[in-house]
């Protein structure tokens, strides 16, 4: 049975059929791969970071956790609405309807963070800020971004390069910064 099938495959028609199947599978796979690399949908479409930065709002105003602990945090919607409610232009803007609806109906805005590291990495914002890093060192120039996108892949090589550079000739610091247990537990 199987031999018959392979014999048929060796026919020109069979080769073409195999080719078509291969192409179909490959393109389906490529498309699926493509979808895995897409930015996820956010509750407020096209959220403009750049506008907020342009108004001179500091990163830490909305993401205050960064200076205190591991997570920078996403502002609660009451904080968003606290400002937007005051501004006539944004109070009734169609673009901000999701926020307004959420606030008025007591529902949550569900965001999908994109500046993420895998589950097995324990990252702490505070330590990095305390070490003199600025937000843009890792997160890029947010003043030019709409919806935030990572300026580079947050992988271990990238982390470790910076750690080793930071340590320089300080052997004790190097030990600390290159220790597996510093990030993985």
């Amino acid at each position: 049975m199987i031999k018959k099938f392979f014999d048929w495959l060796k026919q020109p028609l069979g080769l073409i059929a195999a080719g078509i199947v291969f192409l179909a599978v490959f393109s389906a796979f490529a498309y699926w791969l493509y979808t895995t690399q897409q930015a996820p949908a956010q509750p407020v479409p096209g959220f403009p970071h750049k506008t907020h930065v342009a108004f001179g709002i500091q990163c830490l105003y909305c993401h205050p956790g960064a200076s205190k602990g591991p997570a920078a945090g996403i502002p609660s919607q009451s904080k968003c609405w606290g400002c937007h409610n005051q501004i006539v232009k944004t109070r009734d803007s169609a673009l901000l309807a999701p926020l307004k609806d959420a606030v008025l109906n007591g529902e949550s805005l569900v965001w999908v963070p994109v500046a993420i590291v895998p589950d097995f990495v324990q990252f702490n914002h505070r330590a990095h800020i305390a070490a003199g890093k600025n937000c843009e060192d890792c997160h890029g120039d947010v003043s030019q971004m709409g919806i935030y996108q990572n300026p580079q892949v947050f992988n271990m090589g990238w982390c470790l390069n910076c750690h080793v550079e930071t340590a320089g000739e300080d052997q004790e610091l190097l030990i600390k910064l290159s220790d597996c247990g510093t990030c993985h537990y």
């Binding site: 597996c180 247990g181 510093t182 993985h184």
Partner: peptide, 15 residues
């Protein structure tokens, strides 16, 4: 499973 130089612990690096 490596030894932490900094904390002197046996680590288990899950990844």
């Amino acid at each position: 499973t490596v030894h932490s130089q900094a904390e002197k612990l046996n680590l288990q690096v899950y990844n």
